[in-house]
Write a protein that binds this DNA or RNA. Structure first.
Length: 505
RNA sequence: GGCCCGUUCGUCUAGGGGUCAGGACGCAAGGUUUUCAUCCUUGAAACAGGGGUUCGAUUCCCCUACGGGCUACCA
């Protein structure tokens, strides 16, 4: 059986956006599922849109997401090079071959002439299309005598090769997610395949030639490519090449459903559209999922479920589970509006399952920035107590500051709610009891305080909330006894004393 | 405008001729907890409309509406 090979083929025109990540993910899952190859090809045939740093960004982003490619830009492989600008020498012969075989032709129209034809078309109320209806009135090797064609080719440098779309034939393809798609060729236009002025192909030619040369078996890409699918089929046929299988993925839409998510959305929408922070050449900075505190596993899990589902009620998938269960047949046809709340929920789920030590390592820099340098083991214990209350590591400080410093102020509402004339006496008693305990463990302290509360016939809630207020400064956090054990006896007594002074003044 | 693709709770989706139309996020209400969060329970919430076909359509077909994509010597 033929080896499955897929590619992710972005253009280095800026940061890779989140929809691109999803496309890469589906390619990756499909490749792994079928024990095939996943290739990264850089489609940089438009030098005017080239953006410095974009390729490296794409590679870094895929790496962060855990989408390891087997061949491609940066790592090479048997079909090197994987950057189309470095493959420019191979495309012209294919374009010329198409001309020789009658499937394409030379066109000499200047951009002004094309512009004029379009405006003239607009004036008449119809859109200009370069195809069988107009090509004879344009300047090309179909309309011009041979000697003029030669002359143009020799004397000008801005001619192109256009594909000659046949008239009134139906092209139909079986798309792996959409089923049969068919189009009548009369509505297609004679797309430019190759440009003399920069000796480079356009997307359509480069894409097909490279997919053929790189032995790609499945083309999995965004739905925005569906309209050019008939053209691509026609090109494959013209070359007499076996076409790969196609799968067009539904688009990721903006949350309001008005249009697809695009790079230009930056973070105007209130959430990142890029996996990693991106600094554009003009200095504009866009935030990234990584910098916002998302775990790559959470992002991947979230993205995988946008346009695909396992058909079960499972929501949480590791990469291995995704690989095992992925199936193009279960890809949804309709576009998915982006909902960041769900992404947050996934992050929370993954955060909860992280090891305390791992979280501590992530939290440590935050603490150090505040001038704190607690022992890692202590931080790990704190993380263990607060992690299920957080969505991001960046939530940690607000949830755990009191493990690292004596509260500087006390929550007004909590003070009003829990403080009264008996508070001083209660806290003094607690202080006395605790100071008498030498083994300051959660068990021992809890036992001592609870039996005292019981003895006094008081309400546990009232006492504990007051105690919490004194130690934490607010009505938040894990078990009081876990807290005081961690901060220690001395600090606990100090905080009680401090709070006592506060309520007495 | 033309062509293509799509349309199940607010969102992501399951389902598919006869279902109480299921799950998840979010939201609301209870419960657990010394607080917050977690967790548990419950609730509100959907088949775009109209025609067919059929004993029966949310499911199949057609039309309309709406949404999206494409319509470059961009990808």
């Amino acid at each position: 059986m033929e080896r499955i090979r897929v590619r992710f083929a972005p253009s280095p025109t800026g940061a890779l956006h989140i929809g691109g990540v999803r496309t890469a993910l589906f390619n990756y899952l499909f490749a792994r599922k079928n024990a095939g190859d996943f290739i990264l090809r850089i489609e940089d045939t438009d030098s005017s849109r080239y953006v410095e740093g974009a390729e490296q960004y794409i590679i870094n982003a895929l790496k962060w997401c855990g989408l390891k490619f087997d061949e491609g830009a940066g790592i090479g492989g048997p079909h090197s090079p994987y950057r189309q600008s470095e493959r420019k020498h191979i495309y012209q012969q294919y374009a010329e071959q198409l001309v020789d075989d009658g499937f394409a032709y030379y066109a000499f129209d200047t951009s002004e002439e094309l512009e004029n034809a379009r405006t003239a078309g607009d004036a008449n109320g119809n859109t200009f299309v370069y195809n069988y209806t107009t090509r004879n009135s344009m300047k090309n090797s179909l309309s011009l005598p041979a000697h003029e064609v030669q002359q143009y080719k020799l004397q000008t440098n801005n001619w192109v090769i256009r594909f000659r779309i046949p008239v009134d034939t139906t092209v139909s393809v079986d798309d792996l997610v959409r089923g049969n798609v068919s189009v009548n060729t009369s509505v297609l236009d004679d797309k430019v395949l190759w440009k003399k002025n920069d000796e480079l192909p356009t997307y359509h030619l480069a894409n097909i030639v490279d997919d053929k040369l790189m032995e790609i078996t499945h083309v999995i890409r965004g739905e925005e490519w569906l309209p050019s699918l008939p053209l691509h089929i026609l090109i494959y046929n013209a070359f007499k090449w076996k076409q790969p299988q196609f799968a067009h993925l539904p688009l990721l839409l903006k949350p309001d459903g008005k249009g697809k998510l695009s790079k230009r959305d930056g973070d105007k929408l209130g959430f990142p559209v890029f996996p990693l922070k991106w600094t554009a050449p003009d200095g504009e900075i866009s935030r990234g999922y990584r910098e916002d505190g998302y775990f790559p596993e959470a992002l991947i899990n979230f993205l995988a479920l946008l346009g695909w589902n396992a058909g079960t009620e499972q929501e949480l998938f590791s990469m291995d589970e995704l690989i095992r269960q992925f199936d193009l047949e279960r890809v949804v046809k309709s576009g998915a509006k982006f909902n960041i709340d769900k992404a947050k929920w996934f992050n929370q789920q993954y955060l909860k399952t992280k090891k305390n030590e791992e979280l501590a390592a992530l939290y440590m820099p935050v603490l150090q920035e505040k001038g704190l340098n607690p022992p890692p083991r202590y931080v790990a214990k704190v993380c263990g107590l607060i992690k299920e209350r957080a969505v991001f590591v960046s939530d940690f400080w607000d949830l755990s500051y009191y493990f690292f410093m004596t509260p500087e102020n006390y929550d007004d509402k909590a003070v009003k709610k829990y403080c009264n004339d008996t508070s001083s006496d209660i806290l003094t008693s607690i202080s006395d009891i605790l100071s008498g305990i030498s083994d300051f463990s959660a068990e021992k302290t809890e036992q001592a305080i609870h039996s005292w509360i019981e003895l006094q016939g008081m309400k546990t809630g009232a006492v504990m909330n007051l105690f919490r207020l004194a130690i934490v400064g607010a009505s938040i956090g894990p078990s009081m006894f876990d807290i005081i054990t961690l901060i220690g006896k001395k600090e606990t007594l100090f905080r009680l004393e401090t709070f006592l002074w506060f309520i007495q003044h």
